[in-house]
Design a protein around this nucleic acid. Sequence first.
DNA 1: TTTATAATGACTTGGAAG
DNA 2: CTTCCAAGTCATTATAAA
Length: 694
Amino acid sequence: MGFESINYTPATVCVLTAAGSFGFDNVAFFFFFSHLIPHSFLKQLEVLVKAVAWKEMDGDSLCGEDDNFDWDSEDEREIENCRLSASSSLTLPAAEATANTAVASSSVGSSGSKLIDHFVGMGFPQKMVAEAILENGEENTDLILETLLKCSARSSAGSSGSKLIDHFIGMGFDAEMVAKAIQENGEGNTDTILETLLTYSAIKKSPEEQPHVDSDHWSSEYDGDLLDDFSDIDSFENEEIAKSEPDEGNTLLFLARMGYTVEEASIAVERCGPDATIAELTDFICAAQMAKAADASFPEEKPTLKHFDDDYPKHKKRSYYEYDLWKRKQRMKLEKRMLHGDDELLRLPNPMIGFGVPTEPAVVTHRTLPEAAIERPYFYYENVALAPKGVWSTISRFLYDVEPEFVDSKYFCAAARKRGYVHNLPVQNRFPLLPLPPRTIHEALPLTKKWWPSWDARTQLNCLQTCVGSAKLTDRIRKAIEDYEGDPPLSIQKFVLDECRKWNLVWVGRNKVAPLEPDEVEMLLGFPRNHTRGGGISRTDRYKSLGNSFQVDTVAYHLSVLKDLFPGGINLLSLFSGIGGAEVALHRLGIRLKNVVSVEISEVNRNIIRCWWEQTNQTGNLIDIVDVQQLNADRLEQLMNSFGGFDLVVGGSPCNNLTGSNRHHRSGLEGKESSLFFDFCRILDLVKCIMTRN
DNA sequence: TTTATAATGACTTGGAAG
DNA sequence: CTTCCAAGTCATTATAAA
């Protein structure tokens, strides 16, 4: 059976991947891509497949004809479930709306910004788009397209194979889409490939995602307000403006989103030069518009000025500078609203106790899961709570719209650890690991009590991270305070406390602070002593592995409900295992580990798990896998057939690009490491598919 | 080569103060 | 309500030392 009339969902995407792994030539590209292409593209692919679902496009063209993937009625039911869940716009904004409205209008909009959006969305460089529009006019989209295709063909001469793929991906098309287009048209004919891609993009792109800005913005009150706000400001501070720029290469698009026409924007860019700031450009455009207005004999005061002025507090006498400043801030807010929309972001709970912690009265004893999340297996996903805006909404959306549970481990141990957990486990009748671990520094590290100064009011530690304070810093602190008989002056106290909080330093002697020892970190995180010690691991690497790990007591509390559900033990798929936080948690809960498939890229971490496994006299079976990206449907099915599927899929994907500690590459889920989250989704979906079929 | 060390902010949130 | 400020964050990179 083929893929006809299937509702495409994220689950389906993984099925496509699965089909590829069965070795059919015509789908080999899919397999190839799903592992080598940045997985951020999968997110976009999700949008595409949903759009395709609504479009009721013929499925055969998307996945190849000859697959022997056996779809029985149960599969179709499951797929249907997935679709239903995907269409319930529980949390999310743009992507969902995109899919829903894609059918309504697949034609190209006539407004300037829409037009730019449309073509830029297809992956054409925006400069090229603008030139093409200027050349052909906004009306004739076919001509624009032709121009763009010519330009693209020129720059893609001589490409073949993966180069060809790279080329189209570089243009912004989804990897899977590219693979399919190449597969359909052959490598030789780049033009038809591009056309195919454009067709898909047209389906994918939706007017909802694009700003509602009329090309005739003079007639729009809202746009008028905006323009007026700009025109009214004489002096822009460029750095402020620059901050609001979404992307440095998207100047034209940005201007278009502000409501200017392509023509206006292009002329401004042309006149002001490519390096001009948005402020300079808007100034230029405003000047041009005022001239235009004067030409058209509009002598009256622009009506839209009042909008902001009405809000300006009149009872206070302020200088012009203050007024200007206030005005700019109003504008910044407006821009922010425009850029990010009014999408409601997930709020972190305060206190951060999720659905309940052992020491506080339970707040949630029962919850209703989305339908698609109920089926087997249980899954448990973890990552940092304080991720960039929108990240958790995305994570939730990809994990069947399950609401994340945000918990700070300071309710379980003596150190804070703010994390979000998305899981489909029951939340009733949880129980903690015993004995309850110490929850204050003094209880956890009794030897520090003797040296703890009264002016250091800390009772708990901050988040245990991968780096520790340097010796030089502790020396600076010692020198700063050893000159004083009693308490040092407040300024010194503040300096010391700030550094202690930043580096989690504890008092180990008179005027002596020190970072935590690795075994102290192990203890705080709930691991057995020396869990990460020996076996050729360096001290630095111990800190790193521990800093990246679960807090065992916290995770165990959530997983405790499995004990009654699986009295005979469980089969566990552990992705991004690290030093085995999930395994340790389950073991300490007394849940037998029957078969554990552990996927972990780091060799030292795999050794740590293997060591622990052997030391704890496990009766089950531990299988190592190195790379989640190499874990395909074939391997999974082979594994699952041998022991009958997984009861639990656990994983905390890398947070490198999400955490605030990262000064260099905090790029969100699209980041190099953090995009591995999409592999968690992929593999979870594969497991679901295989288990539903068997 | 491996390991340890030091230098490197941005971004978000909550709460106090006005 | 706005404005301001304090607090906190599963880190990366270059360089020195072993």
